[in-house]
């Protein structure tokens, strides 16, 4: 039921994530990070998801492009991540069925 490599990968992810959650709190308490680092950390989340989404869309086709467009529109209108995912997946599904 549990493979060693899978278990190690999950534990690695868990430790890395806990280090982020707790490390930030204790580090910022102990020392004040430079304004440059603080500004950089502010840009990291957006740039990271752009880095994931853009190559995936570039490698995709009509299904992915229309799905992404539907996701963006639904997200703008609703502000709810769940609605965005549902609308995008439904649009991708429609393209898949029609072809």
């Amino acid at each position: 039921m549990i493979e060693t490599a899978n278990l190690l990968a999950i534990l690695g992810m868990a430790l890395a994530t806990l280090a982020c959650r707790a490390g930030g709190y204790f580090l910022f308490r102990a020392l004040r990070p430079s304004p440059f680092l603080r500004a950089m950390l502010g840009y990291v989340p957006g740039a990271l998801f752009v880095g994931y989404v853009v190559p995936a869309l570039a490698a995709g086709g009509l299904k992915e492009w229309l799905g992404a467009a539907a996701t963006l529109v639904a997200m703008r209108l609703s502000g709810n991540v769940a609605v965005g995912i549902a609308a995008g997946t439904a649009a991708a599904w429609a393209v898949w069925l029609l072809r």
Binding site: E64, G67, L72, G84, I85
Partner: peptide, 8 residues
């Protein structure tokens, strides 16, 4: 992928 597009 839609989850990440939403989070953007």
């Amino acid at each position: 992928l839609a989850a990440f597009v939403s989070l953007l």
